Amino acid sequence: MVKIRRYVDVEASGIGEKIKQARKASGRSVEVLAGAAGISRTYWHDVEAERIRDALPENTLRRIEQVLDVDFGVKFDD
């Protein structure tokens, strides 16, 4: 058996600002939210500032959405 992997990138304009607004609306600190999402505070700030080197992994985005209790509407075409 051979595994085949497919990577798909989608553009999500303004996602960092949306995350920042949702964080502020939640009233919780970056430390609390990042910890709940399983990422560092520094990485959370990098996501908000859209300073991600390559691409934000989908599972990280989904964890951020989960801790903020929002859906940013990022969809893949499959």
Rank of each mutant, 00 (worst) to 15 (best):
D77N: 12
W44R: 11
T60F: 09
R63Q: 11
E50P: 00
D46P: 00
K18V: 04
I15M: 07
E17N: 06
R23T: 13
L61P: 10
V74E: 09
V32D: 14
V67C: 01
S29I: 07
I15E: 02
G27I: 05
A34P: 01
E50H: 01
Y43L: 11
A55T: 09
R6H: 14
I4C: 04
Y43F: 15
R51K: 15
K20V: 02
Q66S: 14
I64S: 01
K75D: 12
K24E: 15
I15Y: 03
L56Y: 10
R53H: 10
R6P: 03
R23N: 08
L33D: 03
V10S: 06
R62A: 08
E31S: 14
E65W: 06
D78F: 10
W44H: 07
L68G: 07
R63V: 00
S40H: 07
Y43V: 06
A36W: 02
A55P: 05
V67Q: 07
R23D: 08
A49L: 14
E48H: 06
S40A: 06
K3Q: 10
V30W: 00
V2A: 07
E11L: 12
M1Q: 02
A55S: 15
R23M: 15
A37G: 04
D54Q: 10
I15A: 04
G73D: 12
V8Y: 11
K75T: 13
V30C: 04
V10W: 06
V32M: 06
R41Y: 11
D69G: 00
L61N: 02
D77E: 15
E11G: 07
E31K: 15
E58S: 05
Y43P: 07
F72L: 10
K20M: 14
V2Y: 05
W44N: 10
V8Q: 15
A55N: 09
R63T: 01
D78C: 04
